[in-house]
C-alpha cells in the first residue's frame, strides 16, 4: 500500500491528471459559453481536431509552441465560423451542422496530415514550462507549480469566465440569449450578435484545447487523436450548467479517470483502462438516477432565433 501513498506516485498522478484535464477544461469551458447562449455545439470535437492539426503544423514550422497554440485558436475560430454561418445566421439545425463539422474536420485533418506527414511523422520539442521558484519545491503539491505555462492560462480563464457570467452585462446577455432570446431582443440587444460571439469564443477555446493536446501533451498530431474527448467535454458542460467552477471540477474528474490507469501501472497495479474510463460515467449516471432532477439546460438551446418569429 505504501507504494500507492508514495510522493512520487501522487505527484505523477496529479501531473497526469492535469495534463489530461486541460483539453477537456478548455473545450468544456467553450461549450458552456455557447450552450448558455443557446447553441449546442456538437462539432466541438471537430474544432478540437482542427486546433490540434493547425497547432501542430505551426509549432513544427515555427519551432515555437506559442505560435502553435495561437494557430490552434485561430483554426478553432475558423471552424466555428461554419457554425455561425449555418446555425446562428441561417438558422439551420444545430445538431446536423455540428455533425457535419465533426465529419468534415475528422476527414480534412486526417487527409492533410496524410498528405504532408504521412511518411515522416515528425515530433515537436517540449513546450515552455512555467515553474514558480519556491512553490515548486513543496513535496507532492509542488508539481502544481511546475506546469506548461498554458495551464495557468486555463485556470485564469475559469476565473474570468465565471466572473463574466456572474458579474457583467455581457454574461447576462449570453445567458439571456440561451434562456429567453425574445426578451433579449426586446431589450434592444442583438441576439444573433451575442450568439455569434459566443460561438466564436467556443471555437477559440476548443481549438486551444485541441492545440494543447497536440502541441503540449503529445508533441505530435495523430488523426482522430481527440478520441471522443469533445463529446466528454459536451457532457461536462451540460452537467456544469453554466458554472465555471463545475467545469473545472468535471474536467478534473474525467481527466483523472483518463490518466489514472497509467499512474497505477507505474506502481505495478494493472487496472483495465476500460474500467477506469467507465467510472466517471457510472458516477455521473448514478448521481443523475439517484438524485434525479430537472435538467437546467437553457430553454432556447438548439432553437434558432429569428426576429419577429414566435
Amino acid at each position: 500500500m505504501d507504494s500507492i501513498m508514495s510522493a512520487d506516485f501522487l505527484a505523477a498522478v496529479i501531473a497526469g491528471a492535469i495534463m489530461a484535464s486541460m483539453p477537456l477544461l478548455f473545450a468544456a469551458l467553450g461549450e458552456t459559453i455557447s450552450e448558455q447562449a443557446g447553441v449546442l455545439n456538437l462539432g466541438l470535437e471537430g474544432m478540437m481536431l482542427a486546433g490540434g492539426y493547425a497547432g501542430f503544423v505551426l509549432a513544427y514550422w515555427s519551432g515555437s509552441s506559442w505560435v502553435g497554440l495561437l494557430a490552434a485558436i485561430l483554426a478553432g475560430i475558423a471552424v466555428s465560423l461554419l457554425m455561425v454561418v449555418f446555425s446562428v445566421r441561417m438558422g439551420r439545425d444545430q445538431i446536423v451542422v455540428g455533425i457535419a463539422i465533426l465529419f468534415a474536420m475528422q476527414g480534412l485533418t486526417s487527409l492533410l496530415h496524410q498528405v504532408q506527414f504521412g511518411e515522416s511523422y515528425p515530433r515537436l520539442g517540449e513546450a515552455a514550462m512555467l515553474s514558480i521558484p519556491g512553490l515548486r519545491d513543496i513535496p507532492v503539491l509542488g508539481i502544481l507549480f511546475n506546469q506548461p505555462a498554458v495551464v495557468y492560462i486555463g485556470v485564469a480563464l475559469i476565473i474570468i469566465v465565471g466572473w463574466i457570467f456572474l458579474k457583467t452585462n455581457f454574461g447576462l446577455n449570453i445567458r439571456a440569449a440561451g434562456w429567453k432570446p425574445v426578451a433579449l431582443d426586446n431589450a434592444g440587444v442583438d441576439v444573433i450578435k451575442i450568439r455569434t460571439i459566443a460561438v466564436l469564443v467556443t471555437g477559440a477555446l476548443a481549438g486551444l484545447g485541441g492545440g494543447y493536446m497536440a502541441v503540449v501533451t503529445a508533441g505530435i498530431f495523430v488523426p482522430f487523436m481527440t478520441h471522443g474527448q469533445g463529446f466528454i467535454a459536451i457532457v461536462i458542460a451540460m452537467l456544469a450548467r453554466g458554472r465555471s467552477t463545475w467545469v473545472l471540477i468535471g474536467s478534473l474528474l474525467f481527466g483523472t479517470a483518463l490518466s489514472i490507469a497509467d499512474g497505477l501501472q507505474l506502481v505495478g497495479i494493472e487496472v483495465s483502462t476500460d474500467i477506469v474510463n467507465m467510472l466517471p460515467f457510472v458516477f455521473v449516471l448514478l448521481a443523475l438516477v439517484l438524485f434525479g432532477r430537472q435538467s437546467y439546460l437553457p430553454a432556447a438551446l438548439c432553437i434558432p432565433f429569428e426576429r419577429g418569429k414566435r
Binding site: 465533426l102 468534415a104 475528422q106 480534412l108
Partner: peptide
C-alpha cells in the same frame, strides 16, 4: 477518412 470529409460536405450542402 476522406470519405468522412465527403459525408461532411454532403451535409453542409444539405442544410444549404
Amino acid at each position: 477518412d476522406f470519405l468522412l470529409l465527403l459525408i461532411g460536405l454532403v451535409l453542409f450542402f444539405m442544410v444549404l
